[in-house]
């Protein structure tokens, strides 16, 4: 089997594997970030350019380095290839550039965005973003369109990863939406304000790396880090759906239902709209147990594993604590249990 070395770590993988997938097999910090690549969707990848890596040795047969940085999600490995990701200054520099490009037209509405806390662009911005922007022109805006009663489209937040169009192509019987126009005016849209209506349309929400497509039934209900995700399943009658989901609960209330996601924020199996939107009742589900969260995830609210330096904030204590009724709501304990106490 061909051997590839990424940031000094060698691994043997099957021929035809992409660099990104080889890196994911190794795991850890050396995995390049990916905004548009989605292993479950055929043909995705190559568009966002954040996964660019430097190939310092082409292969055993042709040891010359590649002149340009290559998109790791669509470059197949060759035997003896040496790849630099975190160790290459050039790659880090370029990735900062690409993140800056992605952010110049992205609105800074994280405080009111439902995706905040589980947003890939937030994570990327945290790792590679600059403190200030160098962009002083107006950000681009779009006319709002309504794509149905289940999904909310915020085109201004979109980074045009094309994942949702692949979902529509590959999961649903027909595609109602696509990309209109070109260049920085291109937008995800249904042709002449058509509603997206099919059994698997909800998966567009899960694959969206940013808050461009969000769940209308969960809109502004809560922040994700106030909810606790549980693994759950139900007997689903839809042939393509196995009914295995994550329930996002607050106490005994089910706030939203999403597909199960792995460590790279990709869904494990796509779920149908019935599971996602119509069963917001705890009794409909068999709960398996709490979902294991990533160590540094913001959803681990209150249980940070990372030690932080103590900060003394010089202000009135009441101001920091907030109102009593708000504090109760923020706690992970269900309201009725809190009452008992």
């Amino acid at each position: 089997m061909p051997k590839v070395t990424i940031d000094g770590v060698s691994i043997e993988v099957e021929a035809g594997t992409t660099i990104l997938n080889a890196a994911r097999k190794i795991g850890g910090d050396l995995v390049p970030p990916a905004m548009c690549y989605y292993s479950k969707l055929k043909g995705s990848g190559g568009k966002c350019r954040v996964c660019l890596v430097e190939i310092s040795k082409g292969s055993e047969a042709n040891p010359n380095p590649m002149p340009k940085l290559q998109a790791s999600c669509c470059t197949p490995i060759a035997d003896g290839m040496e790849v630099k990701n975190m160790t290459s200054q050039k790659v880090q520099d370029m990735r900062k550039g690409v993140v800056e490009f992605l952010l110049i037209n992205h609105p800074l509405d994280c405080p009111i965005c439902d995706q905040a806390g589980e947003c890939d662009l937030q994570n990327l911005g945290f790792d590679y973003g600059a403190q200030t922007t160098r962009y002083q022109e107006g950000r681009r805006t779009f006319d709002k369109i309504d794509i149905g009663d289940k999904i909310q489209l915020h085109m201004t937040r979109c980074i045009l990863c094309y994942r949702c169009t692949y979902v529509a192509d590959q999961l649903t019987p027909h595609r109602d939406h696509g990309v209109l126009n070109r260049g920085d005016a291109s937008e995800i849209s249904t042709y002449i304000s058509h509603a997206i209506d099919n059994d698997f349309s909800g998966n567009m929400i899960d694959v969206c790396p940013v808050g461009a497509l969000t769940d209308k039934t969960f809109r502004f209900k809560s922040r994700v880090w106030f909810l606790k995700p549980y693994r759950a399943h139900r007997q689903c009658s839809h042939e393509k759906c196995n009914g295995q989901v994550d329930l996002w609960m607050f106490g005994n209330d089910v706030y939203r239902v999403t597909a199960r996601k792995d460590e790279y924020h990709e869904v494990e199996s796509f779920i149908c709209n019935e599971c996602r939107f119509d069963h917001k009742n705890k009794a409909d589900w068999t709960i398996e147990g709490p979902r294991k969260l990533e160590k540094w995830s913001v959803i681990n609210q209150g249980k940070y594993m990372k030690r932080t330096a103590e900060v003394n904030i010089d202000t009135e204590k009441a101001l920091l604590l907030g109102r009593d009724q708000d504090r109760k709501r923020i706690s992970m304990v269900a309201p009725e249990e809190a009452k008992k106490k």
């Binding site: 966002c48 954040v50 490009f101 920085d184």
Partner: peptide
């Protein structure tokens, strides 16, 4: 610009 990849889509306009 076709608007497919980020550096060209955002950079050319900038």
């Amino acid at each position: 610009s076709c608007g497919q990849c980020s550096p060209c889509r955002e950079g050319t306009g900038w």
